[in-house]
């Protein structure tokens, strides 16, 4: 059963992975980090990514048509993808069995990152992290 650190190390084995973090989007707290962060500061990156995740999680425009209840079996919003000229950011919401607001953040180099693969793997990791 993986803990936070094992989960992050596994994320770093994905092709093109530059850095990864587990972040709480209500507080902006980085619960765990590995590798590099844009600008070199994981804590700032976590706080900024948390703002983005919060908007996606809370605004009804991004919710599925059957509502945005975060206490259900699946998270209403699954992930966020940002691409820029040299990298991808993938944010994957983690569904926990207790009240929380956690997501995985993976930073990928655009040259050798595989976004489709990373999206599938990150979803699997998010599930294993909380369900064992």
């Amino acid at each position: 059963m993986p803990g936070i650190d094992e989960c992050l190390l596994e994320a770093m084995t994905l092709p093109g992975a530059r850095g990864a973090a587990v972040v709480d989007w209500t507080s902006g707290l980085a619960l765990g980090t590995v590798g590099d962060a844009p600008g070199g500061d994981h804590e700032t990156t976590a706080a900024e990514a948390a703002e983005l995740a919060r908007l996606a999680a809370e605004h009804s425009a991004f919710a599925p048509s059957d509502g945005s209840d975060w206490s259900e079996q699946e998270t209403p919003v699954e992930d966020l993808i940002i691409s820029n000229r040299d990298s991808y950011h993938l944010l994957r919401f983690v569904r926990t069995t207790f009240d929380s607001s956690v997501f995985l953040h993976l930073w990928l180099a655009r040259s050798d990152g595989n976004l489709a693969l990373a999206r599938i793997r990150l979803g699997e990791m998010a599930g294993r992290l909380v369900l064992g």
Binding site: M1, I4, T96, S100, V130, G132
Partner: peptide, 21 residues
């Protein structure tokens, strides 16, 4: 709790860290 399958290690860590901070 983790060894006896009561809760996944990751879930305990997430909840514990959240509560600690």
């Amino acid at each position: 709790l983790v060894d006896h399958g009561r809760i996944a290690e990751g879930a305990l860590e997430l909840c514990h860290l959240g509560a600690l901070y």
